[in-house]
Simulated assay, not measured.
Amino acid sequence: MKIIAVGMNYAAHNKELHHTLELTEPTIFMKSDSSLLKDGKPFFIPDFSSEIHYETELVVKIDRLGKNIAERFAHRYYSEVTVGIDFTARDLQRRLREQGLPWEISKAFDNSAAIGTFIPLEEAGNINQLSFHLDINGKTVQQGNTADMLFPVDKIIAYVSRFFTLKIGDLIYTGTPVGVGPVSIGDHLEGYLGERKLLDFHVR
């Protein structure tokens, strides 16, 4: 199982983090299989960072083997979606970027990919018009809609499949909208797709 993630896929978020790149194709990075945090288990803040940020995202699960998938056929390769959190050690990422070094360790550390309960796409709605949001301690802190993606899901799948064979069970984190921020010990995170809560866990 691979966890494939898309960076800088919402213009307002890019501005939020002061990214000025004019993107012509998706920005891809990977998370390790040990990054997955599921079943409502708590997220423990690691000792190597003092600035862990949440990034709420729509997550797509691949359910068919594919390579070099044409964009017009990409919709055939997934049928379930959920919301997830791409946890980022922002202080570590910032330092590595400033040094021009790879920053995988700030993104792919253990339990950095929280995942909610998957639901059939037919229940969720149009993949290109899905709203989602994150509540922390009962207050909405981040919300987005897939309509605002720079690169929609089918384009992401077509692009990624040029480089990696997609396998059943692979997860694609599709990018985060504006509104990222830090988490603290004791926080209660709840992720919603529309008004349906699919993610619920605590920070320890």
Rank of each mutant, 00 (worst) to 15 (best):
Y192G: 09
D39W: 05
L134D: 04
A158Q: 10
L17I: 15
I119V: 15
Y10E: 01
I62W: 04
L198V: 13
L58P: 07
E57W: 08
G100Q: 04
E22M: 08
V183E: 12
R76E: 15
E123P: 00
I127G: 00
E123R: 12
T146F: 07
L36K: 15
G84I: 02
G169R: 06
D86Y: 08
P46D: 03
L21Y: 13
F151P: 09
L171C: 06
A113D: 10
I185P: 01
F201I: 13
H133R: 15
K107F: 13
S32F: 09
E195F: 12
P102N: 05
S161W: 14
K15P: 03
L17H: 07
D63T: 07
V6F: 07
V153P: 01
N137M: 02
G194A: 12
L166Y: 13
I62K: 03
G40L: 12
Y173G: 06
K167P: 00
A147W: 05
T88G: 09
R97M: 13
M149D: 01
K197F: 11
S184C: 09
L193D: 09
M8P: 00
D39Y: 11
M8E: 14
E71A: 14
Q143A: 02
M1N: 10
N9V: 00
G125P: 10
F151H: 13
S34F: 12
L101F: 11
S49D: 05
T56V: 15
K61N: 00
I119D: 05
A147F: 13
L101V: 08
E16C: 06
K155A: 14
R196H: 15
N145T: 08
H202R: 15
T24P: 04
Q93F: 04
S79P: 00
F109P: 08
K155E: 13
V83S: 01
F132A: 11
P120Y: 04
L193M: 15
K2M: 13
E57G: 04
V178R: 07
D200V: 10
T82W: 11
F29V: 05
H75N: 04
P42H: 07
L37Y: 13
G84H: 05
I28H: 07
Q129G: 10
V180C: 06
M8W: 14
V180L: 10
H19Q: 10
D86G: 04
I105P: 07
A89D: 00
G144S: 07
V141C: 04
L198A: 04
N68G: 03
D170H: 02
F43K: 14
R162E: 14
N145P: 12
R72P: 00
I115T: 11
K15Y: 06
V153C: 11
D154C: 14
V59G: 07
E195R: 14
V153D: 02
I45Q: 08
M30I: 13
I156H: 03
E104V: 00
N126T: 06
R204T: 15
E122P: 00
V59S: 10
L198T: 11
L150I: 15
E190N: 08
I156W: 02
W103P: 06
I52S: 01
Y173W: 14
F118S: 10
V59C: 04
G100F: 03
I156P: 02
L65D: 06
E25R: 14
T24M: 10
A89I: 08
D86V: 05
G66V: 05
L121D: 00
L130G: 05
R196P: 02
A12T: 01
G116S: 06
T117A: 13
A89H: 00
D110N: 12
K15E: 15
G40D: 08
I185D: 08
